[in-house]
Write a protein that binds this DNA or RNA. Structure first.
Lengths: 144, 144
DNA sequence: ATTTATGCAAATAGTTTGCACACGT
DNA sequence: ACGTGTGCAAACTATTTGCATAAAT
């Protein structure tokens, strides 16, 4: 029994073809390209001959999100075009994101100093942090 | 001639009633409540007897955004409900946001240490920062 | 056999746009 | 008068939902 099958069982979801395929896709994609929109997932799967409806993709992703199998992000690329949610496999660890506006690459990072300062700021104002989201939008450095 | 009128002239927009009213609203609201959605602006203005269409509110806000008179944010309150853009007057200075999930209050802050670390991280990966967005989602501390 | 998933099409929510009229300059 | 801006209604996009069928346990 595959690992994916167990993942699904563990979170109480039936092991169906669409769910396995979506998991597979999210696992396969390479590091800088593993943040996919619902539509990308839909398109990629159908290109590979898997006939899976867009509604199913959305439903499955939102179930996965609730089950903490995936994380959902809203990267506002600032560029005005309509914003789409994108999803990545949930690896357990928290990390922030750096999005390259030219290539669309997404680099993940963690900086303990930044994390600490955030806690301090929240604390100073009498709050506890529930969550936070840090996205740095970047462009490749023009090396002279 | 009012300050608002000059703001509009300066960015090349005609001085119209809807634009003045929207500016006024954004200026008047108190610090923790000055991040308004298009719909809130529409509703507030109409409650005050200003008959301004929702489409106009959207159009004006997006013109203001391009003119750097306002900033647009997408606060994903995590809670699953549909996400709406919200707008605040652009004061020139950059700042990050802390959103209270219980009251909806928005606290602004800047931390030079965090800013610096971000530059460092981008730099280390060969990127220049174009922009960044840091939102801390918090809940009031339960004081024992 | 029973429960849960799926696909399709229709619904929804936020936002945008076309067009005829009204307003600012 | 001229060029913009506005309001309304209709269009659009991302996402969700109702329902009849199909698949998983």
């Amino acid at each position: 029994m595959s690992e994916k099958t167990m993942d699904l069982r563990r979170v109480g979801l039936k092991v169906t073809h669409p769910r396995l395929q979506i998991l597979r896709l999210l696992e396969q994609t390479d590091p800088e390209r593993k943040h996919l929109t619902a539509d990308e997932i839909y398109r990629l799967l159908n290109e590979q001959g898997e006939e899976i409806g867009l509604a199913t993709v959305y439903r499955v992703l939102s179930q996965f999100e609730q089950a903490c199998l995936v994380r959902k992000h809203m990267f506002d690329d600032g560029s005005g075009r309509p914003m789409q949610a994108c999803y990545e496999l949930h690896d357990g660890d928290h990390h922030d994101h750096m999005v390259c506006l030219e290539t669309g690459d997404v680099i993940e990072f963690v900086d303990e100093e930044i994390e600490e300062r955030q806690r301090e700021i929240a604390n100073r104002h009498g709050y506890d942090i529930v969550e936070h989201s840090l996205v740095i939008y970047v462009k490749p450095k023009k090396s002279a």
